[in-house]
């Protein structure tokens, strides 16, 4: 543990939820700050250095999505949203507002921790300018614009590469259909999800070791796609929590 402990801000009005999150995060080596309201959360986020924010959608003073929007207006800190029940449309909206990911309550701490790690790693990569993303046997070198599978270079069309590039930039987090369609085909095709479906099918044939049960390019039904977390892709399952 030569690195300093990451700092998490937990925003939830339920004290029991905060308590188990605090314990869970502390067990995983985080320093924990808590906030019970949106206003408190925004104040805390401006006053202290924070590495990641966990925010509940249902806060007493304002909607969680407003907290996301307000924090996003000045900060790139990763934000993960918790919600009791939300439709896919609400999830998409949260992601568009700038949330990095969402977890639906009830959830296990391992599930949340996996998302947190992904978000932190992405932030780190962005800060250090690390040029390549590795998911299991697949490596995407963003600087050289090269994609290799088990060390073998793949031949991709420019659009295929562009799609992988967008996903790799958000590696581990969900990217919405609209975001992908806009970035790869342009904004007039934002509603054409069937483009994306057929396209992803072809791409999976190239990049997945077992295209029939994709482990690298993962579908999030009704929301978008996700480039799997490195350990996820190897085990075929969300990473178990390792106790440090």
């Amino acid at each position: 543990m030569s690195e300093p402990s990451p700092i998490v801000l937990i925003v939830d009005d339920e004290i029991q939820i905060r308590r188990f999150l605090r314990t869970g995060f502390e067990l995983n080596g985080f320093v924990v700050h808590e906030a019970g309201t949106g206003a408190e959360a925004i104040r805390a986020a401006t006053l202290r250095p924070i590495d990641i924010v966990i925010v509940d959608l249902g806060l007493p003073d304002m909607d969680g999505s407003e907290v996301v929007e307000r924090i996003r207006s000045w900060s790139t800190v990763p934000i993960i949203v918790l919600s009791v029940r939300s439709t896919e449309a609400q999830k998409v909206r949260l992601l568009e507002l700038g949330a990095d990911d969402y977890v639906v309550k009830p959830f296990g701490i391992a599930e949340l921790m996996a998302r947190v790690r992904v978000a932190l790693r992405r932030q780190l990569r962005a800060a250090s300018g690390e040029p390549s993303v590795t998911v299991g046997p697949l490596t995407i070198d963003l600087a050289a614009r090269a994609v290799t599978l088990n060390g073998q270079r793949l031949t991709l069309t420019p659009k295929e590469y562009r799609l992988l590039q967008v996903l790799a930039q958000h590696a581990g987090n969900v990217v919405t259909h609209q975001h992908l369609l806009k970035d790869v085909w342009g904004s007039i095709h934002m509603q054409d999800t069937h483009y994306l479906r057929i396209f992803v099918r072809k791409l999976r044939q190239k990049i997945e070791p077992t295209p029939d049960s994709p482990k690298i390019l993962v579908t999030e039904l009704g929301v978008g796609y996700r480039l799997a977390h490195a350990s996820e892709a190897e085990n075929g399952a969300p990473a178990p929590v390792t106790v440090s």
Binding site: E14, Q16, I17, R19, F20, L21, T23, G24, L27, V84, K105, P106, F107, G108, I109, A110, V241, V243
Partner: peptide
């Protein structure tokens, strides 16, 4: 239930 489930998962990973 979210608290119960969450707490149980934290407990199961407790050293």
């Amino acid at each position: 239930l979210a608290s119960i489930l969450g707490a149980a998962t934290v407990l199961s990973s407790a050293p």
